[in-house]
Structures are given as structure tokens and as C-alpha cells.
Amino acid sequence: MNQATPQVGTLTGTFTQLLSSTRRGARLARLLAVTELRSWGVPQDLTERAEVIVGELAANAVLHGRLPGRCFRLTFVLDPVAGRLRVEVTDACGDLRPPIPPADTEPDPLRPGGRGLLLVAALADHWDCVPSPPSGKTVRAVLSAPPEA
């Protein structure tokens, strides 16, 4: 009697690392992202977009979500079948949630900062911010690999 073996699930890659809430930790997050994604064989376009997104989200976690003595967490979840990568940065300060700018808003060219999330929105398919109990928040960005020609 021949029976098909059911698929238990698709293989996904996951990576999680706690990093210090310092400029050095934010830089290390970006470097770890590139190293880990290359080791998984992620396409270069996806790796490069993820590198910029990790840099922006980690910098925001250090600048705006830092509490003394608390780290931030960097997480990747790769679904190679769907060609999708989820980048998550979790910090300890849940009361300061990033505003999601309207799609038709142009950044103020004279303002010294505030363009990081516009970059994230431009490079990711989708991004959002969710609570991370007990008192933190997680900013997530989903990226899809371009279809292969």
C-alpha cells in the first residue's frame, strides 16, 4: 500500500540576537544581518534592502527605544518557498510607538532627521509596529524577493 507522505511544514530560517542599546549594537545588528542572510543564500537584492532596514530600525531602537540596562532584539524569519523575509527589532520602550506616515506625505527637506521610516516604507512590502509584552514594542518589516526571470 503506497501512501503519500504529508508535508509537515516548510523549512524556514530564523535568527534572533540580543544586542546592546548602543550605537555599536546598532552597527553590529546591520553587520550580523548581512552575514546571516548571505550564509542562508538570500538573493543580494533582498540582503541589501534588509541591511538598510535593519540599520534604520536598530538606530531607532537605540535612539528612541532605549531604557538603561535593557537590550534590543533583532530577529529574522526567512520563508524561502514564498521568497519572504521578516525583519523584527524589539526594544524596551513600548510607550513611544513610531508614527506611520501617510503615503502621500513628503518629508520636510529642512528637518535634520525623520526619514528612516520613509526608507523602511520604500524598501519593504509592509511594515508595522506591535506591542511586545510586558512593556516593549516590535517594529516589523516584510520584504519579498523579486520573482526570478
Rank of each mutant, 00 (worst) to 15 (best):
3 Q>L: 15
3 Q>K: 15
7 Q>K: 01
8 V>M: 13
8 V>S: 14
8 V>I: 13
15 F>E: 05
18 L>P: 02
30 R>W: 12
33 A>S: 04
34 V>P: 10
36 E>Y: 08
37 L>P: 02
42 V>M: 01
42 V>H: 00
42 V>T: 00
42 V>C: 01
43 P>Y: 14
47 T>R: 06
47 T>E: 08
49 R>F: 11
52 V>F: 05
52 V>T: 12
53 I>K: 15
53 I>L: 14
56 E>F: 00
56 E>G: 00
57 L>W: 03
60 N>V: 00
60 N>Y: 05
60 N>H: 07
60 N>I: 00
61 A>T: 04
62 V>Q: 01
66 R>V: 06
70 R>T: 06
72 F>H: 12
73 R>D: 06
75 T>I: 13
76 F>C: 07
77 V>K: 12
79 D>G: 08
81 V>Q: 10
83 G>Q: 10
84 R>N: 02
85 L>C: 09
85 L>D: 08
91 D>H: 02
93 C>D: 12
94 G>A: 01
96 L>I: 03
98 P>E: 08
99 P>V: 14
101 P>M: 09
103 A>P: 00
103 A>K: 10
107 P>L: 02
108 D>N: 13
109 P>F: 05
111 R>W: 07
114 G>N: 10
114 G>S: 10
116 G>N: 05
116 G>A: 08
118 L>R: 15
118 L>T: 12
119 L>V: 05
120 V>Q: 11
121 A>H: 09
123 L>K: 08
127 W>C: 08
127 W>P: 14
128 D>L: 05
128 D>S: 07
129 C>Y: 02
130 V>I: 15
132 S>K: 08
133 P>W: 02
136 G>P: 01
137 K>E: 14
139 V>Q: 10
142 V>Y: 13
143 L>G: 04
143 L>C: 02
144 S>D: 04
145 A>P: 14
145 A>I: 13
147 P>S: 10
147 P>W: 12
148 E>W: 06
148 E>D: 03
148 E>T: 00
148 E>H: 03
149 A>H: 13
